Simulated scan of single mutants.
Amino acid sequence: MKKQLIACLFVSALAFTTTVSSAGAEGRPAPQRACINQSVIQLKYPMQKLWIEHAWWTRSFIVSSLAGLKDQNDVLVRLLENQVDLGNIIKPYYGVQAGNKLTSLLKEHILIAGKIIEAAKAGDQAKVNQFNKDWIRNADEIVAFLTSANPNWNKQVLTDMFYTNLKLTTTEVEDRLKGDWTADIKTADTNETHLIHMGDFLTDGIVKQFPNRFR
């Protein structure tokens, strides 16, 4: 019987001690070792890729929309394709109907974002606030849908993750409108990292729910 490939990855702790002693010693991240098998990798890395695409095609759409670039509609089409892909990646575990439902909710998430961008560009704060409420409502629906499918996806944790993404995306728009390019780039990087973590959270939940498929 062919042995299953085991990939062992060395990672650094994300958090480290920042306290500096009187001698001036700084805390440093301690290396940790994590092993994941090939079947997990075949879900984990494609999931990460899709959420990275989500971050960067959303950013591209923000840039094109605010600048009134001619590629705005083409970028939107590509961004909406990403939502189809995110729905498709869960279909092997939850079925076609569930995958299509997630795609529908995520497409709504993108279209509401477009309305927020246009309202912010026009300086209409009342509409920004109105659409933001709709955006939060949509995020709550996405979380409710996902957590009803998988009890390993903690509702509060996932809600915080989606709300953080909304906040970071809004901040990207605000930074670009102010012309604060340094802050804009930093926020975009933060949003990408955040969505990678969210993708990993979703992968971990699927692996826990269907352990026999990841042996």
Rank of each mutant, 00 (worst) to 15 (best):
residue 2 K to Q: 15
residue 4 Q to D: 15
residue 5 L to T: 13
residue 9 L to M: 11
residue 12 S to V: 04
residue 15 A to I: 03
residue 15 A to G: 04
residue 18 T to S: 04
residue 19 T to L: 15
residue 22 S to L: 15
residue 24 G to L: 14
residue 25 A to Q: 12
residue 30 A to G: 00
residue 31 P to V: 03
residue 33 R to S: 08
residue 34 A to F: 01
residue 35 C to I: 04
residue 37 N to A: 05
residue 38 Q to E: 12
residue 41 I to Q: 13
residue 41 I to G: 07
residue 42 Q to T: 05
residue 42 Q to G: 02
residue 43 L to M: 04
residue 43 L to V: 05
residue 44 K to L: 12
residue 45 Y to I: 02
residue 46 P to C: 09
residue 51 W to D: 04
residue 53 E to C: 04
residue 55 A to T: 02
residue 56 W to F: 12
residue 58 T to L: 10
residue 59 R to Y: 10
residue 59 R to P: 01
residue 60 S to E: 09
residue 63 V to A: 14
residue 63 V to G: 11
residue 68 G to D: 13
residue 69 L to T: 14
residue 70 K to S: 15
residue 71 D to I: 13
residue 72 Q to N: 12
residue 74 D to R: 09
residue 80 L to Y: 05
residue 81 E to P: 02
residue 81 E to Q: 12
residue 82 N to Y: 05
residue 82 N to F: 04
residue 85 D to T: 01
residue 86 L to Q: 06
residue 87 G to T: 00
residue 88 N to G: 00
residue 93 Y to P: 02
residue 94 Y to G: 13
residue 96 V to R: 11
residue 98 A to W: 10
residue 99 G to K: 04
residue 100 N to S: 10
residue 106 L to A: 01
residue 106 L to Y: 02
residue 109 H to L: 02
residue 114 G to K: 07
residue 116 I to Q: 11
residue 117 I to W: 12
residue 119 A to Q: 05
residue 120 A to L: 08
residue 122 A to Y: 06
residue 124 D to R: 12
residue 125 Q to I: 09
residue 126 A to K: 15
residue 127 K to M: 14
residue 128 V to Y: 06
residue 132 N to V: 03
residue 132 N to K: 12
residue 132 N to A: 07
residue 133 K to V: 10
residue 135 W to L: 12
residue 135 W to V: 05
residue 137 R to C: 00
residue 138 N to L: 07
residue 138 N to K: 07
residue 138 N to F: 06
residue 139 A to C: 11
residue 142 I to A: 03
residue 142 I to K: 07
residue 143 V to N: 10
residue 143 V to W: 08
residue 145 F to D: 09
residue 146 L to C: 05
residue 147 T to M: 07
residue 147 T to S: 08
residue 150 N to K: 12
residue 151 P to N: 06
residue 152 N to P: 00
residue 152 N to F: 08
residue 153 W to S: 01
residue 153 W to D: 00
residue 154 N to S: 06
residue 160 D to R: 00
residue 165 N to G: 11
residue 168 L to R: 14
residue 169 T to F: 01
residue 173 V to L: 00
residue 174 E to Y: 03
residue 174 E to V: 01
residue 176 R to T: 04
residue 177 L to C: 03
residue 182 T to D: 11
residue 182 T to L: 08
residue 182 T to P: 01
residue 184 D to R: 11
residue 192 E to M: 06
residue 193 T to R: 11
residue 196 I to P: 04
residue 196 I to V: 12
residue 199 G to D: 08
residue 205 G to D: 03
residue 206 I to Q: 08
residue 206 I to V: 14
residue 207 V to A: 10
residue 209 Q to D: 15
residue 209 Q to C: 08
residue 209 Q to I: 05
residue 213 R to K: 14
